[in-house]
């Protein structure tokens, strides 16, 4: 199983500013002073090994969209945030307009940052393609039609040429799609959200975004631990700090890196992937949060327990389960 991040941000798409680009260039040039480079491979080594990650890279700014690749011919996506535009462009390059494909989309919920990319998803316009949108919410179709109609968008939903099917799901009742068995779980978020656990070829991936963990009810916490149990990878909403999540932003429906570590350690998860990054945070800030999260895991890890691997998602990241990231 492979998991590819097409959109790692929460709430709102963002783009790196000119000032941020210049700052990275300055730091890279400073670090390169006095060096010579023996070809492109040497330059790549410098970028990968000598520059701090947030100088040589960026997290990206597209909203929620994650691809789950089971090796099946069909495609699986989690959510249709702005990241799905680039995925759609990739599909057009790979398959063109004449080779029909099937896409299985699992929707966490219908808030705008999770569906805003759909009007810009080229495969939806092409007759012959099939798009099955799985959702535990009642009438998700209404949200898609409303989003893609005047005055919100100039091209009406009815113009879309693909066969678009809305498939109702019930939490706790698995469905088979795209080579995976998929189970949904209700989460705490305004208007409800749903997490999904994907099982395929002996590997497991949990997509758990837009979920606030209030720790007020042990039964509720244990249900989350059971949902995450022994997963190879959990993509977890770590948008806020714990302090924000319990004070100013309480009941805003998101969680923190600290809670992600605690839940994943208890569930013996192998790899925690922080997602739904706060749009106001730049690359340096997100990288610092990753370092702090690694430290918190060290402090929290029970004696003798295997370390929990932790990463912070970036657009374009690819994780092969259970191998190392090649993104």
């Amino acid at each position: 199983m492979k998991v590819k991040i097409w959109g790692c941000r929460g709430s709102l798409p963002v783009a790196m500013t000119s000032a941020a680009v210049r700052e990275k260039i300055k730091r890279a040039v400073q670090a390169a002073q006095g060096r010579t480079f023996d070809g492109e491979a040497d330059l790549d080594r410098f970028l990968d090994q000598d520059l701090p990650w947030p100088v040589a890279n960026t997290y990206g700014g597209s909203t929620a969209c994650i691809e789950v690749d089971t090796g099946d011919a069909d495609y699986i996506l989690c959510d249709l945030g702005s990241g799905v535009r680039e995925f759609g462009v990739r599909m057009m390059v790979e398959h063109g307009p004449t080779k029909p494909q099937t896409y299985h989309v699992f929707l966490s919920h219908l808030h705008w940052d999770h569906i805003m990319g759909f009007p810009f998803f080229p495969p939806a316009f092409i007759p012959g393609n099939t798009i099955r949108i799985y959702s535990c919410h009642p009438d998700p179709e209404a949200s898609f039609r409303k989003q893609q109609s005047e005055p919100n968008f100039p091209v009406d939903f009815s113009v879309l040429g693909a066969d678009i099917q809305f498939v109702p799901m019930t939490p706790g009742e698995p469905v088979s799609a795209g080579g995976a068995t998929v189970t949904a779980k209700l989460q705490n978020h305004a208007g409800d959200s749903y997490g999904y656990r994907f099982e395929s070829g002996g590997r497991s991936f949990v997509y758990a975004t837009d979920s606030e963990h209030k720790q007020k009810n042990a039964e509720e916490t244990q249900a989350v631990v059971a949902f995450f149990k022994d997963a190879d990878l959990v993509a977890f909403d770590a948008q806020y700090s714990l302090a924000e999540a319990v004070s100013l932003k309480e009941d805003w429906g998101h969680s923190s890196n600290v809670i992600g570590v605690e839940l994943c350690l208890e569930a013996r998860v192998k790899h925690l992937l922080m997602i739904h990054h706060e749009p106001v945070l730049g690359d340096e800030a997100l990288y610092r949060i990753l370092e702090e999260t690694l430290r918190y895991e060290e402090l929290m890890r029970p004696e003798g327990a295997a370390p929990l691997r932790i990463s912070s998602a970036f657009d374009g990241m690819v994780l092969s389960l259970p191998e190392e990231s090649d993104g």
Binding site: A243, S247, V258, E292
Partner: peptide
């Protein structure tokens, strides 16, 4: 020191 670190990581030192 360790408790201070947890306060900092969680940003509780700001609250």
């Amino acid at each position: 020191p360790i408790v201070r670190e947890v306060f900092s990581i969680s940003r509780f030192d700001k609250v």
